[in-house]
Design a protein around this nucleic acid. Structure first.
Lengths: 128, 128
DNA sequence: CCTTGACCTTCCAGTTACTGGAACCTTTAT
DNA sequence: ATAAAGGTTCCAGTAACTGGAAGGTCAAGG
């Protein structure tokens, strides 16, 4: 398969796949004309990467997950650890954002949002 | 005030303040030796920026908010619009992260996390 | 007077994970 | 013959800083 075909099949942009090759996540061969040639295994890897990224795993995590996936002697605890760390991370982000949201919601609610210049939002930002 | 002093007062890293000058958010004068000199108004601005950034506003939004803050003829609706857009943005992010979290939590819960290689997390990533 | 240490300066590179674009080559269809 | 569609490489840009190198300035101590 050429890159366009594999991109469509994996649901990833062509550019992204080239980038993944550049950082060593996939290693397509090359045909005589210099075009990348992807095997089924490469497509499988790209699907794996697409799903991992969609779950928010960093490229580093994806690399580790892929290595574990290909390591028959892995222990599931290694995988789980990565996922747990990521989960904790996400929960932290959610908490941060919720706190931001609450603050912002209060500020927005307190602001008339009309033609007058008085604005509790600006008052708050400027230190009350 | 020199940059170190104002940094401490505003609770921002020195590097950040230099960066803010570079992108035109503050315009300290210079003393004869080339050192930046910050007035009270600059400190006030930096505090404003610090609070805005802490609420998650982008630099672009911060610039707009600062301009509105300094514009006596503003209407509070302009401020409120920026805040509302930001709030909606954050709510979108929260929803995305919550969905990720739910998926991840299920996956983590389904994985034994022991010495064996069987792993529902990897199964899921590889397309079941 | 000299040195030491704390500040200050500028400039360059790196971070994350791509994305856009230019310049150019290959293949396929008309 | 040519034009469209697809491929190639390489460079630059994104957001908002952050780290580090090389070097100037200033106040205090011996």
């Amino acid at each position: 398969m050429n890159i366009g075909e594999v991109a469509k099949a994996a649901g990833l942009p062509v550019k992204t796949i080239r980038y993944y090759e550049e950082i060593g996540l996939v290693r397509p061969t090359r045909s005589e004309n210099g075009y990348r040639v992807f095997a089924e295994a490469d497509l499988h890897k790209l699907n794996f990467l697409g799903r991992s990224r969609a779950l928010g795993f960093s490229i580093g995590d994806c690399r580790a997950l892929l290595a574990l996936y290909e390591d028959e002697t892995r222990s599931s605890s290694e995988v789980r650890e990565i996922a747990e760390r990521h989960l904790a991370n996400i929960e932290g982000k959610i908490a941060d954002l919720q706190s931001l949201r609450d603050t912002l919601a209060h500020l927005v609610a307190s602001c008339a949002g009309d033609a007058r210049p008085d604005c509790p939002i600006l008052d708050n930002l400027s230190g009350d």
